[in-house]
Design a binder for these strands. Structure first.
Lengths: 104, 104
DNA sequence: ATATTGTACAACCATATGGTTGTACATAAA
DNA sequence: TTTATGTACAACCATATGGTTGTACAATAT
């Protein structure tokens, strides 16, 4: 999870991820749209890959980058779990304050 | 957003966040449960604070750390937006494949 | 056969991160 | 008043990050 959130903690990488989750794109196609060097984009893709947010599939001389939805969902689930804790607390507070009008 | 995801990209910080979203805790109370120094925990809290994931409220000589749900929700919404893009793509693929049995 | 394209990888640099220890100071307890 | 507690902050260190340039090589065009 450290790797996943770290990978998402960069605007360029979130942009790359957003683009490839909409459909696979080659590394050079991705790189064309950023001001930085090709190698820099390559590194960003590698960070996303290490986090399992994307996978690469070789096709001839091109390397196609695909988004990995399952890892995204694991991250989203974690954030939801945090919110659940909050809801749990809110429920407890409601219980403590006394459930006026409640059927419990 | 960079700050938010970066703040979440550390196990200790996610643990701190989880604890304080369940109810405010002082920095020293938090620090007691980790092997690292008090100053290190202080820094972690500061990273969470910079990301607006937590706020600090002084109470006597103690500093109470509270979780900030709205920032959490903004992050969760971003991840959901990525999934929406995927769903959009899946819908398009379904359209391309031809909607057998569909009423459209 | 030669040139171009797409990728990989290493070396290098500046800055950020995650940890430490030490000092200082205000608040609370003895 | 003296002592203990809770926090703040600076200085320092090792390692990671985000960028660069340069080199190498396989696949595709010309």
């Amino acid at each position: 999870m450290d790797h996943v959130f770290r990978a998402l903690a960069d605007t360029t990488r979130r942009d790359i991820f957003q683009r490839v989750i909409g459909g696979g794109l080659s590394v050079s196609t991705l790189a064309d749209d950023y001001e930085m060097s090709f190698a820099a984009v390559q590194k960003h893709v590698s960070v996303l890959e290490r986090a399992a947010l994307v996978t690469k599939e070789r096709h001839g001389r091109e390397q196609i980058v695909h988004g990995n939805l399952s890892t995204l969902r694991r991250a989203a689930a974690l954030l939801d779990a945090f919110e659940e804790i909050w809801i749990g607390r809110a429920t407890k507070i409601a219980e403590i304050l006394g459930e006026k009008g409640s059927a419990t």
